[in-house]
């Protein structure tokens, strides 16, 4: 059974003028203990909004979240219990730690708040620091954030998330602010903790390569919708939605394998319709498939909203009309 189930989650943001902005549109997914689900997509696609809604930092407009099969509390003690179980690691370790307090303070607070016995606090803090390889723990606990490197700070942030013994960790771009040489170490740390503690991990990233290597499943998001999902290898090695193909074709290293050509249609289209390329890639269709304006395979039916359709591999689906047998004939292949 899933630890966390998100059903039809929708988040709207009020705008000063005009209708509300729908940042997340009826998104459903499940998180399982000991597994990592990667959520990838470009900036503004709604990845972080999902994390914020799931961690109950913002209130969704509709949809439900089930923790261990029970509806998540929205206030009082049940909300607190939910928040204990669902912890977050933020992107910027420079902003997520308070510069005025020591590392020890950052770890003691969540322990205190969730009722850890006072006399064991120091031992618990040391245990947390050791679990994220910040040693010697007594020395590290006394340090202030500015004395630590970016990677060390992110380790503190991870230790803090572990303090209330959560079942779920939402990691929102946990390594994108860190230097290349330490990214993998932090991801390996999260991966190791996930195994040891049987955590369910939601890994939000824009980096397809780490998403593939560190997760079981991948969901690809575009403008508030999940456009493709499946096993990590299936989604990356056999990208099916035209947007995923574009993403995978844009990543470094894709050229050598001949993936590169998938970006070409967008450019061709730009030339054909005589719109500046940069302008075209900003265009979003309001109705129907949102990727339509940029899609090289766009058909008439795309003015209607696509549904999730199987692309062949078990559990691998794409929200694209190309995978409906009725329309598949028109465009012989998408791969």
């Amino acid at each position: 059974m899933s630890v966390l189930e998100v059903r039809q989650l929708t988040v709207d943001f009020a705008q000063r003028r005009g209708p509300k902005f729908r940042a997340v549109d009826e998104v459903s997914f499940e998180l399982y203990a000991g597994e990592t689900l990667a959520l990838v997509g470009e900036s503004g696609s709604g990845k972080s909004t999902i994390a914020r809604a799931v961690s109950s930092l913002i209130r969704p407009s509709s949809g439900e979240i089930l923790l261990n099969g029970k509806r998540a509390g929205t206030r009082g003690r049940r909300l607190r219990e939910y928040r204990r179980a669902v912890q977050m690691v933020f992107q910027d370790p420079f902003a997520s730690l308070n510069p005025a307090f020591s590392v020890g303070h950052h770890l003691r607070r969540p322990l205190q708040i969730y009722g850890h016995p006072r006399e064991d606090l120091d031992i618990a803090v040391e245990g947390l620091l050791e679990s994220v390889s910040l040693v010697p723990p007594t020395l590290m606990a006394s340090k202030l954030p500015h004395e630590l490197s970016g990677g060390q700070r992110q380790r503190v942030a991870i230790a803090r998330a572990l303090a209330p013994q959560p079942q779920i960790i939402l990691a929102d771009e946990p390594v994108s602010m860190l230097d290349v040489s330490i990214r993998l170490e932090i991801l390996n740390l999260l991966d190791g903790l996930k195994r040891e503690r049987d955590l369910a991990l939601l890994y939000i990233t824009h980096d397809l390569a780490t998403a593939r290597h560190f997760s079981t499943h991948i969901m690809v998001m575009y403008r508030g919708e999940i456009v493709e999902r499946g096993l990590a290898d299936d989604v990356i090695l056999n990208p099916s939605h035209p947007y995923t193909q574009l993403l995978a074709g844009s990543a470094a290293g894709a050229i050598r394998s001949g993936r590169r050509q998938v970006t070409a249609p967008v450019e061709r289209q730009a030339k054909k319709s005589n719109i500046a390329l940069a302008e075209l890639s900003e265009t979003v269709s309001a109705t129907g498939c949102r990727f339509r304006a940029r899609c090289p395979h766009a058909m008439e039916i795309c003015a209607e909203r696509p549904v999730e359709l199987s692309v062949g591999d078990p559990g691998h689906t794409a929200k694209c009309w190309l995978f409906d047998p009725k329309f598949r004939a028109k465009s012989t292949t998408t791969r």
């Binding site: 290349v180 993998l184 390996n188 290597h213 290293g253």
Partner: peptide
């Protein structure tokens, strides 16, 4: 080599990935 290994290959084989230890 270490810097290259720090950037996992999108399409390559799944293998143990490591950053560069130390500072």
């Amino acid at each position: 080599l270490a810097l290259q290994d720090s950037c996992p290959d999108l399409l390559g084989e799944r293998k143990e990935l490591r950053g560069i230890a130390g500072v």
